[in-house]
Amino acid sequence: MTDPRPVRIGLQLQPQHADYAEIRRTVAAAEEAGVDVVFNWDHFFPLYGEPDGKHFECWTMLGAWAEATSRVEIGALVTCNSYRNPELLADMARTVDHVSGGRLILGIGAGWFERDYDEYGFEFGTKGDRLRDLSRALPRIRDRWAKLNPPPTRDIPLLVGGGGERKTLRYTAEHATIWHGFGDPDTVAHKCSVLDGHCRDIGRDPAEIERSVAVEQAPDELGPRLHELGVRLFTVGQDGQDGYDLGLLKEWIAWRDGLRA
């Protein structure tokens, strides 16, 4: 798939093992360095390192980032659908969209981290249950946006994260603006092919969906290979255990700038 969109670089700033002041400084530094999107994630406890280490809540933080930044897009990679009903989430997203001046991306997924569910009183259920709930939530979110006063400032981009081929990628084809996945280029190529097939099945142009991938290596070889597959949003993850280091992120920004030159 040839995608005319420009390459964008994202940062997933994982809100674990750090004080909020450090998180805020890192968001500012990333924006100054030229990043296009800053994401956090939607968990209540660290995913690795000390399991009871420092951690902050997702959407409260996004509201603060909306005021603390001026250019970058912001969002969760990804919001857990289980933790808020779709109408509430739609309203929260609309509000952050306005606070940020139209810079929110609504990233969403079915949820998977059982400790979050157990300790905060949500029903974990089965993977099938959570995927079914996600499929029902996506149209409800869009329906609520159409009813809100004032409405969102723009058609808020809807990012679906996950690689399940039978359900998640089908829901992505039906509802998403952006698909976010993981894996090496061969895996990404396969997932994109499956997504393209779902788009064709429902009569949607696959080019309408931006392809986004998490990257953990330098861009020298990985960037061109993923770019050739149609990936246009490359997101570097950063953990606060030893302090946030934007070195790899800056390599990806420099690679992006080289393509734009």
Rank of each mutant, 00 (worst) to 15 (best):
G197F: 03
R140E: 13
R103P: 08
P157E: 08
Y83S: 08
W41C: 13
G128D: 14
H198E: 06
D143Q: 14
D186V: 14
K127D: 08
R211Y: 07
G183H: 13
R232M: 11
A146T: 07
P150V: 05
L138W: 08
I23Y: 04
E221H: 07
D143V: 04
A254M: 09
E221N: 05
R132Q: 13
W112G: 07
T168S: 09
R170F: 10
N149G: 04
E174W: 03
T153S: 15
R142F: 05
D201G: 15
I209D: 08
F39T: 04
R232P: 08
D143K: 13
R200W: 06
R136M: 01
A90L: 02
V7W: 00
G247E: 13
E216T: 00
W179I: 09
G240H: 08
R144H: 04
T187H: 10
A207G: 08
L148W: 00
C58I: 09
V99Q: 06
T172Y: 03
A261N: 05
P152I: 02
L233C: 11
R71S: 12
Y120W: 15
V35C: 07
G164A: 10
D129G: 00
I141P: 03
R115A: 04
T153Y: 07
Q241V: 13
G183I: 14
V231E: 01
G109C: 02
R115P: 01
G63D: 01
R204F: 12
W59F: 15
V215Y: 05
P15R: 04
D186E: 14
H190D: 03
P150A: 06
G128W: 11
H43V: 06
M92P: 04
A68C: 06
R232G: 11
D52S: 07
L104S: 05
L169C: 11
P15L: 08
L259D: 10
G111M: 00
V188L: 03
A93T: 13
Q12A: 09
D133V: 06
R115E: 05
L158W: 04
W179P: 07
Y117D: 01
V35F: 04
P206E: 14
V7A: 10
T60G: 15
E67C: 11
M1Q: 09
G109F: 02
H55D: 09
T172W: 06
H227N: 12
G163R: 00
G109N: 06
H180G: 08
M92G: 05
P15A: 03
G181A: 05
V236H: 00
L222C: 01
A176V: 04
F234C: 09
K250L: 06
T69Q: 14
S100N: 08
Y120S: 07
R24A: 14
V72N: 03
D3V: 05
L89C: 13
E216P: 00
M61Y: 12
N40D: 15
R204W: 11
L159P: 02
H17D: 11
G34P: 06
D91R: 15
S193W: 12
A18S: 10
R140N: 06
M61N: 10
T26G: 02
D118E: 15
G109K: 00
F182V: 07
G183A: 14
